[in-house]
Simulated assay, not measured.
Amino acid sequence: MLPGVLRSGVRGWGPAPSGPRRFGVLAASLLITAAAAGGCGSGDSTVAKTPPPLSASAGSTAGSAPGSAGTTTAPPPAPPPPAPPPSDPCAVNLAAPAILDAVSKLPPDPRSKQGWSPEPIAGNYNECAPLSAVIVRANTNAENPNTRAVLFHLGKFIPSGVPETSGFNGIDEKQSTGDTVALTFTNAIGLQSVVKFRWNGNGVELVGNTPAG
């Protein structure tokens, strides 16, 4: 029937069918045309709606995005070093502020009328000893400045109540103990003598002269 339809309806071969046969042929032709058109439209729509596959470069870019699981983070900063331990208060310290304060309170040197240098030339000052001392000199450019000892109890300056300490110019470490300071004196001809001062629990007392060790 289809070849007849094409020959009669499209190319005009022979007379066109009439009556019910004519309507049946036209309906069949319309159905075939609609089916063909619908099939093409469905295929075109499917192709348009299907997303293209991801390329290798797109996957690589997505994997390296900020905040992704593959991102390498910097290690945490190292902890600061521990603080150094405090200095030993019982160690000898000739730069202690208490020395500077004590020297500033001394009366002037009787010979030069000058004050005293805050930099000791000898001493065993520390905050733990019942008795310790430093030797200072007059703050003058004289060739042989006067010297004297300054005494401390547990690191505190003893301003009064002590025997005379002028003229002492050194400390004998071998004869000094925690509560006793052995001060040395060298005279003009080079002879040295030692005088001991001791803390008796209430103040400083003179022990006596001893030969230099």
Rank of each mutant, 00 (worst) to 15 (best):
T165L: 06
T61V: 14
P85A: 15
K174N: 12
W116P: 09
G115N: 09
C128D: 13
P15W: 10
G170T: 00
L191R: 10
A48T: 05
A83N: 10
L54K: 11
S104E: 00
H153D: 04
S42H: 09
L2S: 07
A16N: 02
F157I: 01
S68R: 11
S160N: 03
N200V: 02
P110I: 02
A69C: 06
G167D: 11
T147V: 07
A182E: 05
N202C: 00
S42K: 10
P163W: 03
T165F: 00
L54V: 09
A212N: 11
A58K: 09
G19F: 12
L183W: 00
T147P: 01
A138P: 03
S104P: 00
G24D: 11
S132I: 12
L6H: 14
G203K: 00
C40P: 01
N126E: 07
Q175H: 05
N139I: 04
N93M: 06
A212V: 07
G213M: 00
S60D: 13
N93L: 13
L6C: 10
W199V: 05
G14V: 08
A16R: 15
C40R: 13
E173P: 02
T46M: 07
L26R: 14
R137H: 08
S45A: 14
P145T: 09
T165R: 04
R22A: 15
D44L: 11
P77T: 05
P120I: 07
N200L: 06
G43D: 03
I99L: 09
L154Q: 13
S166Q: 06
E127S: 15
F185I: 01
L183R: 04
T165Y: 00
R148Y: 05
S42G: 10
T147E: 12
G4I: 14
L6F: 15
A28W: 13
V25H: 11
G123S: 08
G70A: 15
G201I: 04
P79I: 10
